[in-house]
Design a protein around this nucleic acid. Structure first.
Lengths: 151, 151
DNA sequence: TCCATTATGTTCGATATCGAACAATTAGAT
DNA sequence: ATCTAATTGTTCGATATCGAACATAATGGA
């Protein structure tokens, strides 16, 4: 048991910031995910796939991986589950016989069209704890941090 | 396929901020977790438990749940795995026969004492993309957001 | 044209994560 | 003191997530 982990101010600051960052995301997700599940029967990951397809149109899994920042094997699982639920299809791709085009089914499109607006409203409500300027500042800092950490 | 999801500026701003927040955390975790795994053979979750026990001493699982913001059933799994690896023990608790005290084993303590400093240094390095003032601002905004969303 | 390299997905095994249902124990109210 | 409430952990079933190993298909160079 070590009470003082670090005396270095830069380290203390960085660790403290990182903890707060993770907690904020955890807390927001913990508020949003149960609603997605209960109201629409989809997980956060499934919602992310549906949303990307809705906004950007059909695309192969590799493109979805880039958009959603998840591994290929993960996406295989998530899309398997969406396909089993009848919300997306893996269609043929004339350009590349490896890469099936993932596309929304009519039911999937209906679901995301119905689920997205209230979800967006909930996000807006939660972020409403910050002023517009604070949100932009937060976004800017996160972006800077994420881009710098990318490599 | 819907190109314009929302015209409302408040909603656009909130969604954009939320995406950046999640991406930043994802990116940071993606940089940190493989190192924890490769250098010390523990996952991020396991590391979190070891760190909490190291900093705060032995405690029942319910306390760990609060500290780490995870569910009880999750913690049962994580601690099962740590116990199987010989890094923690579930000890008897004279005060409450339900709540076993989770404590570090000698090997667990050695591991966290060895793993923590380089991990902290890596976090500090990644957060170094922001100035000290920016980190504090980011932490403040996340804290405000997390607290407001808590309930 | 042919072969090596690269890109795309899947499978497998492991861990994480949650909620619901459950058992055991404690605490509180009457 | 007793009986109900709440607390603590576990189990179960489902989903998410990763990396490694693999198969298939496309690509580019010789």
């Amino acid at each position: 048991m070590r009470m003082t982990v670090t005396r270095d101010p830069a380290t203390r600051r960085a660790l403290s910031t990182f903890v707060k960052l993770r907690r904020a995301v955890n807390t927001l997700s913990a508020r949003l995910n149960p609603v997605l599940q209960k109201d629409h029967g989809v997980t956060e990951s499934q919602f992310g796939v549906l949303e990307a397809l809705w906004h950007l149109g059909p695309m192969p899994q590799a493109r979805l991986c880039e958009k959603l920042l998840v591994s290929g094997s993960n996406l295989t699982t998530v899309i398997d589950n969406l396909e089993r639920s009848g919300l997306v299809h893996r269609g043929e791709n004339p350009d590349d016989r490896r890469a099936h085009l993932v596309r929304l089914s009519p039911r999937g499109e209906a679901l995301i069209a119905r689920a997205f607006p209230p979800h967006a409203a909930r996000v807006t409500g939660l972020l409403g704890a910050l002023t517009a300027a604070e949100q932009q500042q937060l976004g800017r800092l996160c972006r800077k941090l994420g881009l710098a950490s990318q490599r």
